Amino acid sequence: MRTSLRRDLKAALKARDRVSITALRSALAAIENAEALPADHLRRTTENEHVAGAAAGVGATEAERRQLTDTELHAIVEKEAHDRSAAAGEYERLGRHDRAESLRSEADVLSRYLG
């Protein structure tokens, strides 16, 4: 799914499709965030006398990332689409029909990856 999202983002950028660009970037960012390890899992050393617990050495700032399953990827994209639909309903209720329509369009873009 991630490969499809990235490929389609590249096509959307070339086509200057703002709705697709926004939706795809957001979904990819959500995936990247989900892959990040919690801060307590990062490697730390206490060798630096100026900063307690500072990371030191080659590769000290690099951390392995979680490997998400297809089910987890699907759930993330589904949540992104659902959040947009819910927000669109709220904007509609507030009379912001233009913003509601934009969010519904973004949700439609993401829904294509759920089928």
Rank of each mutant, 00 (worst) to 15 (best):
T69D: 01
D83M: 01
A36L: 13
E35N: 01
T3S: 11
R66A: 03
L103G: 01
G59L: 03
M1R: 08
S111K: 12
R43L: 10
H50S: 10
A75Q: 03
E90S: 11
R112Y: 07
A54R: 15
G53V: 13
H74I: 12
A81I: 11
H50F: 15
L37N: 04
E49A: 14
H41C: 09
A107C: 03
S20L: 01
A54I: 15
A87C: 06
A34T: 08
A107P: 06
A34I: 04
R84M: 07
T71N: 02
R44Q: 06
K10P: 09
L103H: 02
A100V: 08
I76S: 00
T22H: 05
A55N: 04
T69P: 05
H82M: 09
A107E: 03
I31K: 00
D17K: 00
L103V: 10
R84Q: 04
L42P: 03
R93E: 05
R99L: 09
S111T: 11
R25T: 13
R2V: 05
R2S: 03
V77H: 00
L24G: 08
V19T: 15
A60Q: 02
S85K: 04
L5T: 10
L24I: 10
L110V: 06
L42N: 02
E78F: 14
L114Q: 01
A34M: 00
A63P: 02
L73P: 03
E78L: 12
A36V: 12
R93S: 05
A39N: 14
R66I: 08
I31W: 02
A86N: 09
L42D: 03
S102R: 13
K14L: 06
E64A: 02
L9H: 14
K14I: 08
A86R: 11
N48K: 05
K14V: 09
A11D: 14
I21H: 02
E35P: 04
A55T: 13
R104W: 10
L94T: 12
T61Q: 08
V51E: 10
T22Y: 06
D70I: 13
T69G: 02
S26G: 15
Y113H: 00
V109N: 01
L13V: 13
T3I: 15
V58L: 09
A63R: 07
L114K: 00
G57V: 04
H41Y: 14
A81F: 09
A39K: 14
N33G: 12
R66H: 08
E90H: 14
R65D: 02
A75M: 01
I76E: 00
A52K: 15
E64K: 02
D83H: 03
E92Q: 14
I76P: 00
L5C: 04
N33E: 12
E80N: 08
A63F: 11
V77L: 00
E72R: 00
R84I: 07
R104Y: 12
S111G: 06
G89N: 11
L28W: 04
A11T: 15
H41P: 04
V19W: 02
R43K: 09
D83E: 10
R96H: 13
T3W: 13
A86L: 10
A54F: 15
V109K: 01
E35G: 02
T71W: 02
K10C: 09
E106C: 03
V19G: 01
